[in-house]
């Protein structure tokens, strides 16, 4: 490779040729970053202040801290039920998306079969199908299946919309794992399935984290499907519950903010944990997608 030719030169060169002007100075990073952080964090802060400060307060500090808004939305407005529903839909979508995409993505990466190319093109096309426009036909299908007002309708719709991207990500990632590693396992007497679990699966962790968290966050956040397919209040998910709070917003800003915190905390926590893997998973999957 040509890199071996370049390496000795480039190793010696930087100390001599790199001028100070070529380096980024601290303020060139911290100033724009600080400004952008303000834009990102002030809105979050606003929500937290309104959620935790007492009613009628005008302070911009959430002090004295009170949980009365949370008690009100959690028990009085049914957010405990919305929370459970969202959690159920999120976890079920995560599991079904990951399992189906894992099987399909492995097949796409490791086998050359008839219809593979057609499937890949079809999958790309589905990226242009808009969720809002599937409301009417999906509603009809779920009505036929008796799934209107069932949380499973949401799980199915979420999974299907997450599948194309998940399949692309996982198959790109499997391709990056040398087949020789698997072959070595087969030589040692592993079946293809055992080889997969022993060799491939552990190396797929970043991809699985990316796909799983995408699926969870998207279904946790989905509004339109939940609004359309579910009409009974005890089946509402958090975004629908929150939208109804917004509808009555002139009345109760504290409740709106507290409901927002309830909806935000799980996804923001999940996201904080996985965002490192997300960038890794995407950069590895993107290369040979």
């Amino acid at each position: 490779m040509t890199t071996t030719l370049i390496r000795p030169v480039s190793k010696a060169a930087p100390p001599i040729t790199r001028k100070p002007a070529n380096r980024v100075s601290r303020w060139q990073i911290y100033l724009p970053l600080g400004l952008y952080l303000l834009f990102t964090l002030v809105p979050f802060y606003w929500m937290v202040v309104f959620a935790f400060r007492p009613r009628g307060s005008n302070s911009l500090l959430p002090w004295p801290v009170t949980l009365e808004n949370f008690e009100h939305v959690w028990t009085g407005m049914g957010f405990s039920v919305f929370f459970q529903n969202s959690l159920l839909v999120g976890v079920a979508s995560l599991v079904s998306t990951t399992v189906i995409a894992l099987a399909g993505g492995y097949a796409l990466a490791r086998y050359d079969f008839r219809g593979r190319q057609a499937f890949l093109i079809g999958m790309l096309c589905t990226q242009f199908i808009p969720g809002a426009m599937m409301l009417i036909p999906l509603f009809e299908i779920f009505r036929t299946l008796g799934l209107v007002n069932s949380l499973w309708a949401l799980v199915i719709a979420e999974t299907v919309f997450q599948l194309p991207l998940s399949l692309i990500l996982i198959s790109g990632f499997v391709k990056n794992i040398p087949i020789e590693l698997e072959q070595a396992a087969w030589v040692d007497g592993c079946s293809r399935l055992r080889g997969f679990f022993a060799v491939v699966l552990p190396m797929l962790r970043p991809a699985l984290v990316a796909v799983g968290s995408f699926a969870f966050i998207h279904s946790w956040n989905n509004f339109l499907f939940a609004l359309m397919f579910v009409n009974e209040q005890d089946k509402f998910t958090l975004p629908v519950g929150l939208a109804f709070t917004i509808g009555e917003f002139s009345a109760d800003f504290g409740a709106l903010a507290a409901g927002g915190v309830v909806a935000a905390v799980p996804v923001v926590l999940v996201f904080a944990v996985i965002q490192r893997y997300l960038v890794q998973g995407l950069s590895a999957g993107a290369v040979k997608g």
């Binding site: 979050f44 929500m47 956040n221 975004p239 929150l242 917004i246 935000a264 996201f271």
Partner: peptide
């Protein structure tokens, strides 16, 4: 990671 509805609320 924040939903459209929550963005609206904020």
């Amino acid at each position: 990671a924040v939903s459209g509805v929550l963005t609206t609320g904020i």
